[in-house]
Amino acid sequence: MKSLDIFCEIIDNYGDIGVVYRLAKEMKKLYKDNIEIRVILNRLDEFKKLNKRVEDIQCQEIDGIIYITEEFLTKNICTFSPANVIIEAFGCNVFQGYLEKAKEESSLLLNLEYLSGEKWIEDIHGMESLMGAKKLKKFFFMPGFSEKSGGVMADSLFLERKHKVLKNKTEYKEKYFGNYYKENMLVGSIFSYEKNFLPLIEALLKNKKENMLLVMGEKTKESFQNLLKNIEVQKLSEDEYVYENI
């Protein structure tokens, strides 16, 4: 049976665990019962918010995928066999005891990096990173938007949802936007770290359209809340606004 270990170090927000969670589910869907997948996490707080079935325990199985903590791995490294293929998500640190075993027992380690539109990633994608191991080979996987990059990872569940929404646009607009949505309205979503969104708001108010922003994530919401506390928007005409500090 094939085996895959994915290492994920959650720093903040939901980007790290979000990508790894979707990747693990897609690999399980693709290979079904012919693969054993384990995800090794440094903590569970963000994961519990993404999936309500996640418990505050060190080792658990959800939808055929085993999720374990780094602490569990460290305690059980003597009886822990590394997978055939390992994914090191976003340059996280793989436990040294595990890595030493993997150099002797595993075949492939992929360093999965962040999505980028920069040209330089084309030179790095697929490049080998020498490890001094007899068996284990390590390569860089650089997601990007060109044919020379690793491409954009879009899982099948996302594509299915997208197709369903496109076929039933009116239904979903009414369900999620209610009376707020109007034809030709510009709708955008924002998910980010803390940021000053005042330049964005100013630009949107000049586009001669009605705009709707879907603000997601705690850090993004906090940024908008702080922005709205410190400014007052006064409408002067149909397409002219002024901001005043308060």
Score class of each variant (00 low, 15 high):
45 D>F: 05
227 L>S: 03
241 Y>I: 02
57 I>Y: 13
216 M>T: 14
206 K>F: 02
119 K>N: 13
152 V>H: 11
238 E>S: 14
33 D>K: 08
52 K>H: 06
76 N>A: 00
65 I>L: 01
182 K>H: 10
108 L>Y: 15
151 G>S: 01
197 F>M: 07
22 R>C: 10
25 K>A: 10
179 N>R: 13
178 G>A: 01
107 S>M: 14
53 R>C: 03
20 V>T: 01
202 E>V: 00
86 I>Q: 04
69 T>F: 00
72 F>Q: 04
36 E>Y: 13
61 E>I: 08
133 A>P: 02
59 C>K: 15
88 E>M: 06
3 S>R: 14
34 N>A: 13
224 F>M: 01
170 T>V: 12
15 G>K: 00
103 K>Y: 02
130 L>N: 14
169 K>Y: 05
141 F>W: 14
16 D>N: 04
75 K>T: 12
197 F>R: 04
146 S>L: 07
237 S>M: 04
163 H>K: 14
18 G>A: 08
146 S>I: 09
18 G>N: 08
109 L>A: 04
222 E>A: 15
242 V>K: 14
88 E>L: 11
128 E>Q: 14
44 L>D: 11
178 G>T: 09
156 S>I: 14
165 V>K: 08
114 Y>P: 09
136 L>S: 02
226 N>F: 14
170 T>C: 05
237 S>C: 02
126 G>E: 09
209 K>T: 08
218 E>F: 12
103 K>H: 00
63 D>G: 00
186 L>E: 01
155 D>P: 09
53 R>G: 02
17 I>D: 07
133 A>G: 00
45 D>L: 02
194 E>L: 11
105 E>N: 05
236 L>S: 12
35 I>V: 15
101 K>M: 03
11 I>Y: 15
5 D>T: 11
139 F>L: 13
165 V>I: 15
188 G>P: 03
37 I>V: 03
218 E>I: 07
97 G>C: 03
106 S>Y: 05
196 N>E: 01
141 F>D: 05
162 K>R: 09
49 K>Y: 05
106 S>H: 06
50 L>V: 01
237 S>P: 02
242 V>M: 12
149 S>A: 15
99 L>T: 05
151 G>N: 06
66 I>K: 10
245 N>W: 13
178 G>C: 08
12 D>I: 05
203 A>G: 03
4 L>G: 10
53 R>W: 11
144 G>R: 11
76 N>I: 00
61 E>H: 05
38 R>A: 03
4 L>A: 10
125 H>E: 04
22 R>S: 10
151 G>L: 02
37 I>D: 04
210 E>R: 14
233 V>H: 13
101 K>S: 06
21 Y>T: 02
16 D>R: 03
90 F>A: 00
134 K>W: 03
125 H>C: 07
240 E>V: 11
65 I>P: 01
119 K>L: 15
145 F>I: 12
134 K>D: 06
181 Y>E: 06
181 Y>P: 02
177 F>E: 08
145 F>W: 07
75 K>F: 07
231 I>K: 11
154 A>N: 13
188 G>E: 12
163 H>C: 12
91 G>Y: 04
112 L>S: 02
243 Y>F: 15
174 E>T: 11
153 M>W: 15
34 N>W: 09
135 K>W: 03
